[in-house]
């Protein structure tokens, strides 16, 4: 049971970091991306390749993940600069769909549907992190480190300009803000952190394949942010815990035929999402309605 809980805690930390990184785009930048799993995926594949071919050192793996995801985030920044609102959502949707196919087809790099197997246990500067406690500590450090960086940046002038941009692009432009630069930076920051989370994820699972980087995953992460509350530091964490623990708790539901449990869990999860949005649209950790 301990091993199971530790595993869950590691995943919660990694997904918390991922959700927080999406919050930079959605909550602070107003860039509504449904392609975040793509950058999580870039990070995971890059990290897995480093771990398999060079060294499973956590620092190197997550740095590689962050770097690759950050550089490739231009694919998202480009449409973000050109279009807004609904159009951008659809653009990111397109990016997500194309990336899923590309992940499946680029077998030499991604292993296709079969995935990359046999990723060695993680290390830190030569010390083994095979113990789940040690790796949990690393995940938590990454989570709180990431949160600290985001808090610092969002409280600073960058964050304030970004939020001004979110609330009114034309007003921000009128005040002489460099809209293109701000948006590109926000995308790069969010995607780099997502890539770091991806690298950790590859080490945690010791296996990556395209199933973890589909539209469903993007929507799940987005739901974590929105259910928790956009534009707040705690929101994504609350959402992550809720959406990770809810299905786990639902598996204890009695009286459902085993083959249907999956579907019933899904139905409850979907219903919870819809009801929450109807009755608490600002999210669990969000402020009262009307003043996002």
């Amino acid at each position: 049971m301990t091993a199971y809980l530790l595993n869950l805690a590691q995943l919660a930390a990694i997904f918390g970091l991922l959700a927080a990184s999406l919050n930079v785009l959605v909550g602070y930048g107003g860039i509504f991306s449904v392609a975040h799993a793509v950058f999580f995926g870039f990070g995971a594949y890059a990290g897995a390749q480093i771990a398999l071919n060079v060294t499973p050192d956590v620092l190197l793996v997550s740095a590689a993940g962050g770097l690759v995801a950050g550089v490739l985030s231009l694919a998202l920044a480009l449409p973000a600069l050109r279009v807004r609102g609904e159009y951008f959502v659809v653009a990111s949707l397109g990016l997500q769909m194309v990336a899923t196919t590309a992940f499946t087809e680029a077998e030499p790099v991604t292993g296709g549907l079969g995935g990359l197997v046999g990723i060695p246990p993680p290390q830190l500067l030569g010390f083994s992190l095979a113990s789940p406690w040690a790796f949990l500590a690393v995940c938590l450090a990454a989570l709180f480190g990431g949160l600290a960086v985001m808090r610092l940046l969002m409280r600073g002038s960058f964050g304030r300009s970004l939020m001004a941009l979110r609330d009114s692009e034309s007003a921000a432009e009128a005040f002489g803000k460099n809209v293109a630069l701000l948006k590109t930076l926000a995308v790069a920051l969010g995607c780099t952190i997502a890539g770091v989370a991806g690298g950790l994820f590859a080490l945690q699972m010791a296996f990556v394949n395209v199933e973890s980087f589909t539209l469903d995953q993007s929507v799940l992460v987005l739901a974590m942010v929105i259910v928790g509350g956009t534009g707040t530091l705690a929101g994504p964490l609350v959402g992550t815990l809720l959406l990770l623990l809810l299905p786990a708790a639902l598996s204890f539901l009695p009286g459902i035929p085993p083959t249907e449990i999956g579907a019933v869990q899904q139905a409850i999860y979907g219903l919870a999402m819809a009801l929450l949005m109807i009755f608490r649209p600002a999210g669990l950790a969000g402020r009262a309605q009307g003043k996002r």
Partner: peptide
Amino acid sequence: MLLRAGLGAAAGGL
């Protein structure tokens, strides 16, 4: 029980 495939990653070891 684990959840459906789409949630798979998050499910990890749920």
